[in-house]
Amino acid sequence: MATQATQGFLARVAGKTKQLFALVISTGAADAGKIVATGSDGRLDATLMPVGIGANTIIAAASEAIGAGKFVNFYSNAGALGVRLADNSNGRQADGYVKDAVANAAAATVFPLDTTNTALTGLTPGARYWLGTAGGVIVAALDPADTANTGKLCQELGVAKSATELVTDDLGYVVL
C-alpha cells in the first residue's frame, strides 16, 4: 500500500466511515469544499490560493536554456514577451531571475527584482553583487575608467543575506 504524503482523517460518506486525505494541489472547481494540506515544503501550493494571491511572477518563453538562480532579461521575441540570460557585456539588463532551471522554449517563471533570489551559491553574507555575464553575478562594480568596459552595463543587483540568498534591488543600470 502506498503511503500518503498528507495526513488523513475519517469522515462519514454515504453512511459509512471512510478515510480521506487533504488536498495538496487543486484542480479547480471540482475540489471546492475540500480540506487542504501543506506540501513537502510546509507551504500551501499556489493552486490552493484565491485568484490574485500568490507569488509575484511573470511567465515568459525562454529563448535559451537558463540555469537556476540566473538573472534574466525580458525582450520582444517575434512580438511576444520572451526571456533570456541577462548579461553586462551585451546590453541585456537584469529584469528578474528564475529560481528553477528552464529549458530552451519552455515557460520560465520569472521573479522580479526587489525580492530575494534563494537559488544562488557561494555568496558572502553582507557583500554587494552586480550583474555579470550569462545571468551570473560579480562581486565588484565594473570600473568606468577601464576602456575594456566601454559599452557594458553596470547594474547593482543587491546584497547577500546568506551564501544562497541575494536580496535584490531594482536600482537600474548605467551604460559605461
Rank of each mutant, 00 (worst) to 15 (best):
A2S: 10
A2H: 09
A2D: 06
A5R: 12
L10Y: 12
R12K: 12
R12W: 10
K18Q: 12
K18V: 15
L23I: 11
V24Q: 14
S26N: 05
T27F: 04
A29H: 08
A30H: 07
A32F: 13
G33S: 11
K34Y: 08
I35L: 15
I35P: 10
V36E: 00
D41F: 15
T47H: 10
P50F: 01
I53L: 07
G54N: 14
G54L: 11
A55S: 12
A55L: 13
T57M: 06
I58C: 05
I58L: 15
E64I: 07
I66P: 02
I66V: 02
G67K: 11
N73W: 08
F74M: 07
Y75S: 08
Y75C: 03
A80D: 10
L81V: 14
L81P: 04
D87F: 06
N88C: 06
N90W: 00
G91N: 08
G91E: 11
A94I: 14
A94F: 13
Y97E: 00
V98C: 09
V98H: 13
V98A: 07
V98K: 11
T109S: 10
T109M: 14
V110F: 09
F111W: 13
P112D: 05
L120F: 03
G122A: 05
G122D: 02
L123P: 05
T124P: 00
P125S: 00
G126A: 07
A127R: 02
R128M: 05
W130V: 00
L131C: 03
L131A: 04
G132E: 02
T133E: 07
L142P: 02
T147I: 08
A148G: 14
N149F: 08
T150V: 15
K152P: 06
L153G: 03
C154E: 15
Q155M: 04
V159F: 09
A160H: 04
A163H: 01
T164G: 00
E165A: 11
V167F: 06
V167K: 13
D170E: 03
L171N: 12
